[in-house]
Amino acid sequence: MTKAEDTQKLISSNNDLRKKLNPTNEKYYSKLLIYVRTSGLLYEDYEVESSLLEILQDILDAQNNGQDAQDYFGQEPSKIANQLINNFTKISFKQQLKFFGTLFGVTAIWTFITQLIGHEQQLNLMPFILNGVFLILFIAGTFWFIHQTTYWKLSDHKIFSFLFTWIVCMAVITIFTGIQFVKPAFLNIPVTPTIIVSLNLLLLIASLVALIKIDKNKRPLMIAISPIIWVLTTTNILKTYLPIGSHRMITLVTAILIFLSCVWFFVCFWRVNRQQK
């Protein structure tokens, strides 16, 4: 078994065992779990998960002996967690490269497809870089925010919290949209229709191969996003060959198909979530 599979096993054991906690202990432990898991992106997953499972098993023992999680583990779980987090091993430089590389790769596919939706016969490198950086900052920022607010509430007022979340969401969407228009001329790469078609075809085939070859536990994610890739790449290919006059029709059909793909995406997630529960 690989280390990734071992980690997956720890996580599913954790999901199963958590159901045995009583409501008070479940609340206490879940907070700890979220706090530790969001402490950083670059810790050894296996070490983090094995530590979390160990604590869960022991809290369950304590519960069976009539002791509350809080009495067993302590009044200040965040302080204890900080000590544990400080001692976790960071992943190696090679693994860090792989991690950031994957994120850049995923955003590159997305950036590539969206840049080719327009009629411009060129790609610009800038959004490729900025989208990658944006995604990393976005994930790190989300983790940081959840981590900070697990034991410390921003405000007890629901309206304030809602307003804050709304402003952050708007800012994120604005920045993300803005990035797509940052295209300095010197980073332009001209592409011919042949290149557009071959790259899109390559992506289409790659997504089909990935669907078959990917790890079993990542397949649901691939099934969820594949239709979006298929629709967009096929549209890009068709647009190159069909006369300009038919483009409006294609765009309309694409829009409907994209909408359906998005619905499919959310249905997939809902199903996976339900299975886990």
Binding site: S51, E54, I55, D58, I59, A62, D71, Y72, F73, G74, E76, P77, K79, I80, Q83, L84, N87
Partner: peptide, 15 residues
């Protein structure tokens, strides 16, 4: 003595 004191200690000793 609580569990919270023991886990960081075990982790340190193992490291």
């Amino acid at each position: 003595l609580i569990g919270g004191t023991v886990y960081p200690l075990l982790q340190k000793l193992e490291k």
